[in-house]
Amino acid sequence: MSKQNDPWEDVVGESLESRVRDLHAAPLTLDAVKGSARAIRRRRRAVAAGSVLAAAAVVLPVAVLGVGGLGDDAPDQPAASDPATPTDGGSTGADTRTRAYLQGTTLHRYDGSTVSLAERYDSVVDLGTGVLVTSRDEQGNLLLATLVDGEVESEERVLDVPVVNGSATAVVVDADRTLQVSGTVVSTPLSESEPAAPEQRRPVRLDRNDYVTALSPECQVDAATCPVYVQGAGGAAVVDAFNGERTPVPDAIEVVDVSRDGMAAVLTSYEGEQSCWAVRDAATGAEAWASCESSLFAFSPDGRHLSGTHPYQDGLGNAWLAIIDADTGRETARYTPPSGVVATSAWEDDEHLLAVTVSDDGWQLVRVGLDGEGEVLATDGASADAFPAPFVLEAAS
């Protein structure tokens, strides 16, 4: 006896098929595609929050790629250097970076070496002895793989891409929401290593709606505590990864980064097209400054500057990348790509940011100085809806 089709399955299937067909029939340009308004930056979650339907996961990058804040007034800024001629295979210039990144299936490591990988991944963390990467399976589940010499050594399901602070890496394992922390120079999770005080350390499981947003600089392999900042249903909190102690962060929706001298970049409010932020002492809560002029991304390694952009973010692209004085909150420079938007960015060192830009002409990897000037390091002619992106930065914002 033949099996009858479920009418609901037919409707869902026809809807998805129609969406995919329409996308292929009418390619979208950066000027035409507008993502949903998002006041809270959540690129990591955009990568992690995939649909259970593989087809939906495939069309997501096209549907959400947009141009953010193009109507904002911007001060005059130094022009970017002349870009390299784009090529489909990519062209690489000077490479003095200290941050790992992926260029297609090529891994560029901290030490300057490169490793050819068997496939492309959508996030990367260089541990030193190994490399963490994430990708999606056919069901849309996020998988975290540990690579050694470019080969997959282990793989498990996780709920978000790893978050790093330069000395430690945290990720939430999917099976039971266990918070797993590893050192960036070792491959063994702390939960599996011999702790200094066994009675004070136990597997820590996060709440159902928690996502890791930042690690305190205090979180070290040999430290007594490991403060991990999470965003949950009740706002921001800090959880000790060694004993599970949870403390709410007052008047904070999200803590996006903590500098090595203990200052925290905090989202305090958002409404419509406006978001407000503050820089506070992470230990005492004392506020250094607050502003509703810019969204905040990450502190430079020396803690003197912050990266950011306009307070209203639309889709997964930003019209410009701001460099902000961490002591005063004053914007000191701004990089605006000659075309397209800034997709992601990350601090390369104390004086440079790496930025991935995308336009209808393809993708570029750009080094941005504290003066706002950009140097194109590599180009790729992939379409704007490519996923994973041709360039993937470690600890990208």
Rank of each mutant, 00 (worst) to 15 (best):
residue 3 K to G: 06
residue 11 V to G: 00
residue 13 G to Y: 01
residue 23 L to G: 01
residue 25 A to T: 10
residue 27 P to W: 09
residue 35 G to N: 03
residue 44 R to Y: 06
residue 45 R to F: 05
residue 49 A to P: 00
residue 51 S to C: 02
residue 53 L to Y: 02
residue 58 V to C: 01
residue 60 L to R: 03
residue 61 P to I: 10
residue 63 A to E: 13
residue 63 A to V: 12
residue 63 A to Y: 00
residue 64 V to G: 03
residue 64 V to Y: 07
residue 64 V to E: 15
residue 68 G to I: 09
residue 79 A to Y: 02
residue 80 A to V: 12
residue 84 A to M: 10
residue 87 T to G: 13
residue 88 D to P: 07
residue 96 T to C: 09
residue 105 T to W: 03
residue 108 H to K: 09
residue 108 H to S: 12
residue 109 R to N: 03
residue 111 D to V: 05
residue 112 G to R: 07
residue 114 T to L: 09
residue 115 V to W: 05
residue 116 S to F: 00
residue 116 S to N: 08
residue 117 L to N: 07
residue 120 R to M: 13
residue 124 V to T: 00
residue 124 V to F: 00
residue 126 D to Y: 03
residue 129 T to F: 01
residue 129 T to G: 15
residue 132 L to N: 01
residue 134 T to L: 06
residue 135 S to G: 11
residue 138 E to K: 14
residue 140 G to F: 02
residue 141 N to I: 04
residue 149 D to T: 11
residue 156 E to C: 05
residue 161 V to W: 00
residue 162 P to Q: 11
residue 165 N to S: 09
residue 165 N to P: 06
residue 166 G to H: 08
residue 167 S to T: 13
residue 173 V to N: 02
residue 175 A to G: 07
residue 176 D to M: 08
residue 177 R to V: 11
residue 181 V to H: 05
residue 183 G to P: 01
residue 184 T to E: 12
residue 188 T to S: 01
residue 194 E to K: 11
residue 195 P to Q: 13
residue 197 A to Y: 08
residue 197 A to Q: 02
residue 198 P to S: 06
residue 199 E to W: 04
residue 201 R to Y: 01
residue 202 R to Y: 07
residue 202 R to I: 01
residue 203 P to G: 06
residue 205 R to Q: 15
residue 206 L to R: 02
residue 210 D to Q: 03
residue 218 E to L: 14
residue 220 Q to N: 05
residue 227 P to H: 08
residue 230 V to E: 04
residue 231 Q to H: 12
residue 232 G to V: 15
residue 239 V to F: 14
residue 240 D to A: 06
residue 247 T to I: 11
residue 247 T to A: 11
residue 253 I to H: 12
residue 254 E to Y: 00
residue 255 V to S: 04
residue 255 V to G: 10
residue 263 M to S: 08
residue 263 M to E: 04
residue 264 A to F: 02
residue 266 V to E: 13
residue 266 V to Y: 06
residue 268 T to P: 00
residue 274 Q to I: 10
residue 275 S to E: 08
residue 276 C to N: 04
residue 280 R to H: 07
residue 281 D to V: 08
residue 282 A to P: 10
residue 285 G to L: 11
residue 290 A to Y: 07
residue 295 S to Q: 04
residue 297 F to N: 05
residue 298 A to D: 08
residue 300 S to G: 04
residue 302 D to Q: 12
residue 303 G to K: 15
residue 304 R to E: 10
residue 307 S to Y: 04
residue 314 D to N: 13
residue 317 G to A: 14
residue 320 W to L: 08
residue 322 A to Q: 11
residue 325 D to K: 05
residue 327 D to H: 14
residue 328 T to N: 08
residue 330 R to V: 15
residue 332 T to E: 14
residue 333 A to V: 13
residue 338 P to E: 13
residue 342 V to D: 10
residue 343 A to V: 07
residue 343 A to C: 01
residue 343 A to N: 10
residue 344 T to W: 05
residue 345 S to F: 13
residue 346 A to C: 11
residue 346 A to V: 12
residue 349 D to I: 15
residue 349 D to R: 13
residue 349 D to G: 12
residue 357 T to F: 13
residue 357 T to A: 15
residue 359 S to M: 11
residue 363 W to C: 10
residue 363 W to K: 10
residue 370 L to H: 09
residue 371 D to E: 08
residue 384 A to L: 11
residue 386 A to P: 00
residue 386 A to M: 02
residue 387 F to G: 03
residue 389 A to L: 09
residue 394 E to G: 06
residue 394 E to I: 08
residue 395 A to V: 02
residue 396 A to W: 14
